[in-house]
Design a protein around this nucleic acid. Structure first.
Lengths: 240, 240
DNA sequence: CGCTGCTTTGAAGCCCTTCAAACCAGGTGG
DNA sequence: CCACCTGGTTTGAAGGGCTTCAAAGCAGCG
């Protein structure tokens, strides 16, 4: 059930059988949410974190004029809100982009897990810091990259992150979201996202149609995005 | 020496004398850096974290064409790179904006601190998550707010964060950085930052001159920025 | 007293937005 | 079985916010 979560962890750290069992014990209730469901509202007191098993979720903030900024996309294997373990309530909302399956991890169990397995505690701390790395890279995109670069960069990031959990090949991946969703990630209008996607398609780099990303030229796409996956901290990070 | 760090912590948590002593013991060497000094380069292996005592530092990323995006400003009392405790090397650079005084906290001591004082461990975990909150708020600014709103928002954020550590009053604070630095925070050109600052000045909201921010209308400024400080998680977070 | 780095201002241009409408596919009901 | 509806995609035309390029102004300093 939590295979993808373990794949994500093991892309950076080795996880022993004992640790794996401890992680499993920290999980409780499974739930399913429909698409476009706000799972967590900013400000509400949380007593558990949400591990995404299947589907896509996002963190987002709304502005008073109805605009919305998505600050991160979550793929299966991610905790959508592990940071709520320390924050207790969130500064942002969390919603599903697609129908999702999740499993809850109560904060008292996470605390027990961290106390009994300090190394896992540090790995989960790392995991929240990895979210911050993604936030920083998005800041760079939003602040300095052109619409085309930004779009290409997002598609590269998802290719890598979905690839880690076995949901992407070199050719592409399922991405059953709308162009409006992409626009909310990129700080653009849906109209302009549409034009950018057209350009990416016509230059033969990548195609995003019918909820699927098909990459025709991965190297060209990375070049267009100036994509450097270092910020995703792949590869084993310590022995043992 | 670490008064401001303690002020920052105590703005959210109570810290006992024992915990305070333990924190002090985790610190070693003090260092001074000149302005515009790159203290940490992306990728280099780190064995300690850097606590900023005095001055201003930033996290930033460079792009191949020479553009730069600052992803966070650090004020006295902040760790510039507590996340290096889990990341071991950074995905970004850290530099001084002004002459700075820092103190180092070796990772092995932080680990000891967290093991012997698990509550402090969680508070430091929280602290890195607070950086992520700031990153998210900046994503919103960069993605959705106009140049004027963005600028006003940054000035509000710094007013609050410097206020926590006793470096700002309701009237303003010292901010000895250039308009070009501000531009690198906001994803704008220095020229446009200059025009926006002129507008903020002429509408009587705030003045940024000679390395000092003078706030003439704090409520108006907050309104212009749609500033909501919730994301800074002020106020006591638990009993005890 | 001229150099240097920062700020300020002007003019022109472009990237992206805005507004509007057509197109298209899938689902529903008559 | 097709007309209709709905949500998403696509395209066009006009406009605006910010950039780019250029140069002048200004303060601190050797």
């Amino acid at each position: 059930m939590i295979d993808r979560h373990l794949m994500k962890l093991r892309a950076r750290y080795s996880i022993s059988q004992i640790e794996e069992a401890a992680i499993r014990e920290s999980l409780t209730e499974v739930a399913r949410y429909p698409a476009d469901h706000t799972a967590i509202r900013a400000g509400e007191v949380l007593t558990f974190s949400t591990l995404l098993l299947d589907g896509l979720m996002t963190r987002y903030k709304d502005l008073s004029d109805g605009q919305r900024q998505i600050t991160e996309i979550h793929v299966p294997g991610d905790f959508a809100d592990l940071h709520s373990f320390t924050l207790k309530h969130l500064d942002h909302n969390v919603m599903t982009l697609t129908p999702c399956k999740i499993v809850k991890s109560p904060h008292d169990r996470i605390q027990k897990l961290c106390e009994e397995h300090p190394r896992l505690g540090r790995i989960y701390w790392f995991s929240t810091n990895l979210d911050a790395c993604i936030h920083r890279e998005w800041e760079v995109s939003l602040g300095r990259r052109s619409a085309l670069e930004r779009t290409a960069h997002l598609l590269c990031e998802l290719q890598v992150r979905l690839g880690i959990v076995g949901l992407a090949t070199g050719n592409g991946y399922a991405l059953p979201i709308t162009q409006a969703d992409v626009a909310e990630c990129l700080g653009l209008t849906p109209v302009h996202v549409n034009r950018v996607l057209k350009e990416l398609r016509e230059t033969g780099l990548v195609e995003f149609r019918n909820g699927r990303v098909t990459i025709h030229d991965i190297e060209g796409l990375k070049r267009a995005a100036e994509f450097d996956p270092t910020y995703l901290y792949l590869g084993q990070r310590e022995r043992g």
